[in-house]
């Protein structure tokens, strides 16, 4: 079996450098916000987390298409790891967003804010991914159903954002609009570097997860081959690709 994870060391170093540089810029270079002061700096964490996690969900759907087209298990692994990581990132993103909302709007949660609400709906939807996998025992069927779900849920992300956006007048600041946003240059540079850092972090963590899972599968296979079928306990029910 060949591993599908390559360039792990290079990616790790690039991530470490970018994230460090982004944090240095956030704390020492980017100017303090005139209205919100220091709290505004959480923006450089919260927004990249949110953007990267949403892209990650859509990516899970794209990998799902890959699995349905080719039937290769590695696509299922990619889809699973992308959605798993996105879930972690988006929980971090929504907590960071809540802290920021409390500081700048005075409320932990605002129903009048479509970006928050649609983000919550997306998280609720993807929270069902693991229970769905867990309740299907046959690994091949599990992978197929999970891929179908990932495709539909990935397409759901943009639709949901459009519908919720239409339903309320928003107060959320629009960072990235067609006119290039309302940020001064130094903030923009910091923001884009943070975004790159978080995206690289996502890719690195996803690859580590894939590497660990593939290693575990490979170890089991080798133990089976060396010690005989009976020496290795059968795997219990699991939600992850196995």
């Amino acid at each position: 079996m060949t591993t599908h994870v390559r360039h792990l060391l290079g990616l790790t170093i690039a991530t470490a450098v970018t994230v460090t540089a982004a944090l240095v810029l956030v704390f020492f270079y980017a100017p303090l916000d005139a209205n919100q002061g220091f709290v505004q700096k959480i923006f450089y964490i919260h927004v990249p987390l949110a953007i990267v996690s949403l892209v990650g969900y859509c990516l899970g759907g794209v990998f799902g298409i890959g699995y349905l087209r080719t039937g290769k298990r590695v696509w299922d692994m990619r889809s699973y790891c992308a959605i798993h990581m996105s879930l972690i990132f988006s929980v971090g993103g929504i907590i960071a967003g809540s802290i920021w909302a409390k500081a700048s709007w005075g409320h932990w949660w605002l129903w009048s804010e479509p970006t928050l609400v649609s983000y919550l709906i997306v998280i609720l939807l993807f929270c069902t991914y693991q229970p769905l996998r867990f309740s299907i025992e046959d690994p091949e069927r599990q992978a197929r159903y999970a891929a179908v779900f990932a495709v539909v849920a990935g397409a759901f992300v943009p639709i949901n954002f459009i519908v919720v956006r239409l339903s309320v007048a928003y107060v959320h600041p629009r960072i990235l609009n067609l006119q290039g946003g309302a940020l001064p240059g130094s903030m923009k540079l910091t923001f884009y570097l943070s975004l790159l850092g978080v995206a690289l972090l996502f890719a690195t963590l996803m690859k580590y997860e894939m590497a660990s899972k593939e290693m575990r599968i490979e170890t089991r296979r080798l133990r089976r081959a060396l010690l005989g079928e009976d020496a290795v306990r059968p795997l219990g029910r699991t939600a992850s690709p196995s």
Binding site: L132, S135, I136, E137, Y145, F149, F156, I159
Partner: peptide, 22 residues
């Protein structure tokens, strides 16, 4: 999807409700 899972009465609503929210 749900009919082939072990907990189909659970999986149906928890998958369906968020998808139907829009």
């Amino acid at each position: 999807i749900a009919v082939h899972t072990r907990a189909r009465d659970l999986i149906g609503p928890i998958l369906g409700l968020p998808l139907l929210l829009p």
